[in-house]
Structures are given as C-alpha cells and as structure tokens.
Computed example of a mutant assay.
Amino acid sequence: MSAGPSAQFSPAQLRAEQFCGMTWGWTGIRGTWGTDAATASMSELPGLGANWVGIAFGALQATAQSTVIDYRAEPTVTDDEVRWAIREAQGLGLRVCLKPVVNVADGTWRAFIGFFDDEVPGEPGWTAWFASYREFLLHYAEIAQEEGCEMFCVGCEMVQTDKRAAEWRALIADVRDVYTGILTYNCDKYQEDRVTWWDAVDIISSSGYYPQGDWDTQLDRIEAVVRREGKPFFFMESGCPSRLGSAARPNDWNLVGEPSEKEQADWYSDMLQTCARREWVQGFMLWDWPAKLYSRENAHSNDDYCIFGKAAEAIVQEEYLRRTS
C-alpha cells in the first residue's frame, strides 16, 4: 500500500473543516478528461474560492435489476483519466473526494436499483449485486489510496440499497482495508433520517436539492440526525438549474423552462444564507462543473446546474471566501 492520503484528518480537524467544493467532470465520459478543455475547466475552481473538488464519474449496469457493473468499458473514463483528474486538482491545491457512481444504461435513476428482500433461486438478487459493486468500489478505493485522495465516497443516492445495512457495513469495512482516508456516503434528499448505518462512515453527506423557502424545515430534520449520530456533516451535492421553475424543483433536471440566471441566483442566496445559520453544516460539493465549460459569453443561455459565468457564481464565491477566511 502507498503512503495514502496526504492529509490525515483527526476527528477534531474533520469537524473544523469547511467544504467549499464543486463536483467536477460528471458523468465522466471517456475521452473528455485529460484534454485542454478539461484542464481549463479545472483551473477555474480556485478562483471560485474552492478548496475541495468532488471528482465524479459513472459506470453502467444494464438495468435496475442487473447484477454486473461494467466499469472497465466505455463510456466510463479510464483509470488514467481518473488519475489525471486527481493529480490536476492536487496541483491546483484542491483537496479531493473521489466519487465513483453507478448508473443504469437504460436511463433508470440509480435510486431504483433493487431486488427482492430475500434471495430467490433463479432471480437476480442483492448478493450478486453487492459482489459486483464491491469489485467496482474497491478498484477505485485503491486508486484513491495510491493517488492520495483525502476523501472517498462509497455510494450516491442509492435509495433502495440503503436498507441493506449489513451489506453496507461489510463493504465499508472492506474499503477501509485498502483506503485510509475519510469515508462518506452521499444519501439522497429526504433520506438522511432513513439511513441506519451512519456510524460506519466518518462524515454524513447528502444531496441538498430542497426547494427555495423549505430549507429551514429540512435542516431541522437533518440536524436531529447529525446530533443523534454525533458525526460531522456536509452536502455532497447541492444545486439548482438556471431555469424558470427550478427553484421549486431543483432536483428535476428534466424540468422544462426558459433560462433564468435570477432563478438560480435566488435559490443559491436562500440556500447559502439558511445553511450559514447552522454551524453544523460544514459546506458543499456543489452540483456541478463539467469537464468542458461553455464560454462565459454564452452563460446566459445555459440552463443547466453549472454556475460558471452566471449570477450565482459571485454569490457562491462570496460565501466560500467567507467560510475559508
């Protein structure tokens, strides 16, 4: 085993850390990392005030009931591309959370990956799926260790798997055999109080796609979990498209609406100001920052989650500089 993550956080240091981060590179399409465009994209993050980056990419299984995760095949980025992204971020002074994610090739959202509660002969089941997921996860945990990533995310928004506490505990124990840094699990929105195995990870994280005006209610609910578990917390994802109607449905990437920087900026102002009043919210890996950016001149016509060149960029930058000053 290599020397591992360069920054070994004590429990006190982890509780004091401010995560001023961005999720970069999604969905990790082979051939799009390690390019001049990807280099330029990553280089913009320090100017935003970022001190962390979540390097996120997906591997595919055929359907929600498949038990084979084909992470070595296209379109998943190659191991060399993953290593390039880590090293590029480190060269910019960013701390890295490596985040390998499973997607479903037929378009089904990963939250619906699931099987019968009990194994049934002749039917796909949890045992085979977790065996494949274990191979997938350990492969990237070893890369995270070798490249010195400070954090590793063991899963993302896998709602139907959350109830399989024994399998998750065993899997996380196996990850710790090869990776010595911080471990988190990125649960889905509204699921923070449903996961029963938070004690197995080092820091709780979730996807913060809550409607504008609803943040206090949701933070009250999440705070009860954080206090009960005695764990630090940050939002591994959070964001809103720059699209009319998205502030009320920030998780809906298919919502139809005209581009609106104001809609996105208002949502960010509400979210960041509300979270700033909760000292236990230690920050964000905002969603998201693609490997190839549009031009600043064309930012006004882009209606996706990225804040580059939009009104929300300055709002995030101000909050990130406040958190790290």
Rank of each mutant, 00 (worst) to 15 (best):
Y209H: 09
D162T: 05
L14P: 00
C97I: 15
K310L: 13
N302D: 14
D117Y: 02
E229T: 06
T127A: 14
P46E: 11
W84H: 09
F116C: 08
C187E: 07
W168N: 02
A128G: 03
A64G: 03
C240F: 06
L183W: 04
I69V: 15
P290C: 09
S41E: 07
E261L: 01
F57C: 03
G208K: 02
Y190C: 01
W109C: 05
N251E: 05
S260P: 08
D303A: 09
M236K: 01
Q282E: 03
A299I: 10
D252V: 00
Y133M: 10
S205G: 04
T274C: 12
A144D: 08
I143H: 03
E157W: 13
G25C: 12
T127S: 14
A40L: 05
T180M: 02
A38N: 07
R30Q: 08
F284V: 08
G31K: 11
Y268G: 01
M151S: 06
A50F: 06
R227L: 09
W26L: 13
P250S: 01
S43F: 03
W24D: 03
L293G: 05
A265Q: 11
V82H: 02
E142F: 00
S206N: 14
A299Q: 10
L98Y: 07
W24Y: 15
V281K: 01
A38Q: 11
R296G: 12
E157V: 08
W126V: 04
V154F: 08
Y185S: 02
E17D: 06
C153N: 11
R87A: 14
G21E: 14
G208R: 04
G107T: 03
G91Y: 06
Q18W: 04
W197T: 03
A16R: 04
R277G: 01
D304F: 12
M1T: 11
F308K: 07
V175Y: 00
D79Q: 13
A299R: 05
A7E: 10
A38S: 15
S295C: 04
Y185R: 09
